[in-house]
Design a protein around this nucleic acid. Structure first.
Length: 568
DNA sequence: GCCGTTTTCGGCCCGACTGTTTTCAGTCG
């Protein structure tokens, strides 16, 4: 099992224990262990001592070991014998938690969302603590439940949040407002949106928001907190007095795991943290904190950027003064992987070049598809040669930017490349990637890609795991082996910035830079607008603790050209 | 369950909103 699956199983264990009404802190232990596994870069399967992970002790380590080696842990099989597995899904219904799910099971014999949805009217309302409203809400949730929840891509979430933010900011009662939550941390996909605001008239702003034109449904509405649904997305607005804005922004940016460890740290120093500010322990009298920087400072820490707030070692690094100097969008000097209408792009060499110039880039590498990828109008050797000429001519025309020749050459099923080496030698930069024969098994796929990595002309491997968010799982490949091989051969790995790829994913990027592998942050743009997706590639790199020095295309033109000349 | 610069036992983050209640449990973030 991979880290993600292991974490999901640990979550499932925690939920089953919650339904059983086990001790709260025992459950919390498994939940925090799940988060540690997700945050971990390299596959936990390869770790010798699992208790080195935060929040993992002897017991949880045994469970993780079993899962990693595809055995069912005794704990899990015992739980599944006692608690129906379908109840885990019941707890995912909005407004239904583990306690309610447990009662539904014990008192009504419910074991799945489907059974709950088919329940006769009045049965639920008759339970103690339930009423008509609760019944209506729960039944509706069960009947409209959709198991395959789709999460927003970063650009969709950014656009939607922008519109909502504009409404909030334009209200006269609003002093400041920002996006918080997972979007501010730039998680790869976004479920809900969190907006925070400060205001001297909180209730007026809350009421206005609940009646905003984009509101589909009001889920909760108090004087400082409004929870609505718009276009199927839940949006949470939280409001505080202006003096407490920093504490609120921090609180709602999360992650929850980061907040918890930070608060525990504060408690040890005699302080409580809440969204209202800092208090001497036990007094409940909060002193407002106006900025996040001030909050960290008063805890004796340097500012921790939102992208790092995942309880993935950032507090320890902050204490030691070893936080990374994270890469920024402005550090990107060029894009090494863009398409044109020679293959399946919509832009021309010129239009793409001009879009790159307007971003301030110093160089741009055109990488159209290779001959065997017919569906993408891949270039035959003859057409590639014509394109090489066309790029050279265009390069003469533009003084502001260096235009270079590349190819996104297919790695064929046997690991050979889709052009002869002699042709690859004529190119400035070669990107290699997989677009066919995804299901050949982990061993064969790994060997196939390692063969490509060992080709002397291949400088980076594009979208190395082939995943497409919300659409396609990554193919099976041993990424850790690819990373070791890339390090050995001085081959880079791509962090593809296209919003539905973001591939390599963050944990692997962190593993790769740890192994000394260079990263290319490319957009794979098929039109001019997509060049702007570089910001999302950069935000993922920041989540992976990447500094500018680890990224090939932060090199100024002269140094980049030297890098090209040196070869591998 | 985990964890330790007051520790190997006794702690373990914090608050808003809802529904069904007359004081609070459950859910959520």
């Amino acid at each position: 099992m991979q880290n993600g699956e292991i974490a999901r199983e640990l979550e499932r264990i925690a939920t089953l224990m919650e339904i059983k009404d086990e001790a709260y802190y025992r459950i919390l232990g498994y939940r925090r262990a799940a988060e540690s596994v997700v945050a971990q870069g390299r596959p936990v399967r390869e770790m010798e001592d699992l208790t080195k992970l935060a929040h993992v002790g002897a017991a949880t380590a045994g469970v993780i070991r079993d899962l990693a080696e595809d055995r069912t842990p005794q704990l899990l099989s015992d739980l599944l014998e006692e608690v129906p597995a379908g109840l885990v899904e019941v707890t995912r219904l909005p407004g239904v938690g583990p306690r309610t799910a447990g009662r539904l099971w014990r008192e009504l014999g419910i074991t799945s969302v489907e059974e709950l949805g088919a329940l006769e009217e009045g049965k639920l309302a008759a339970l103690k603590g339930f009423g008509k409203k609760s019944e209506e809400r729960v039944l509706k949730a069960a009947r409209t439940y959709n198991a395959t929840e789709k999460r927003m891509l970063l650009n969709e979430a950014t656009n939607l949040a922008g519109e909502i933010l504009e409404f909030v900011r334009s209200h006269p009662a609003c002093e400041r407002a920002e996006v918080a939550g997972s979007l501010r941390r730039q998680k790869e996909t976004i479920g809900d949106l969190d907006i925070v605001a400060s205001s001297g008239e909180m209730k007026a702003l809350a009421d206005a928001f609940a009646e905003a034109p984009f509101v589909q449904e009001v889920l909760a509405h108090g004087p400082t907190k409004v929870f609505i649904k718009t276009r199927g997305v839940e949006v949470d607005l939280r409001i505080v007095e202006p003096e407490a804005y920093g504490a609120l922004l921090h609180h709602f940016t999360g992650s929850q795991a980061h907040n918890i460890v930070l608060r525990e740290r504060a408690v040890k120093r005699g302080l409580n943290i809440s969204e209202y500010g800092l208090a001497r322990a036990g007094t409940g009298e909060y002193e407002p904190v106006a900025s996040e920087a001030e909050l960290y400072e008063r805890l004796g820490l340097p500012y921790i950027p939102p992208e790092l707030r995942e309880d993935a070692g950032e507090l320890l690094a902050a204490e030691k003064g070893e936080l990374p100097d994270l890469i920024e969008v402005g550090d990107i000097r060029g894009d090494l992987h863009v398409h044109t209408n020679f293959s399946d792009g919509r832009g021309t060499i010129e239009s793409m070049a001009e879009a790159a110039i307007s971003l301030g880039y110093e160089y741009l590498v055109f990488c159209d598809h290779s001959q065997s990828l017919k569906v993408a109008n891949g270039l035959s050797p003859e057409r590639l040669k014509r394109k090489i000429e066309a790029v050279r001519e265009a390069d003469e025309k533009y003084g502001e930017i260096r235009l270079l020749n590349g190819s996104e050459v297919d790695i064929l099923k046997d690991g050979t490349l889709d052009y002869e080496d002699a042709l690859l030698a004529e190119l400035d930069f070669v990107v290699a990637s997989i677009h066919t024969s995804f299901n050949i098994g982990e061993e064969a796929m790994t060997e196939r890609m390692i063969r490509a990595i060992n080709n002397p002309y291949v400088r980076t491997i594009a979208h190395p795991t082939g995943r497409v968010l919300n659409r396609r799982e990554p193919y099976e490949v041993d990424v850790s082996r690819l990373i070791r091989e890339a390090a050995r051969t001085n081959t880079a790995l791509e962090l593809n910035s296209y919003v539905d790829r973001l591939d390599l994913s963050v944990p692997y990027v962190r593993e790769a830079i740890g192994a000394g592998v260079k990263i290319t942050i490319d957009t794979d743009a098929h039109d001019e607008g997509a060049l702007g997706f570089a910001r999302f590639g950069v935000s993922q790199a920041r989540r992976a603790w990447v500094e500018k020095g680890s990224v090939v295309n932060t090199l100024p033109l002269a140094e980049f050209e030297a890098y090209l000349r040196e070869g591998k």
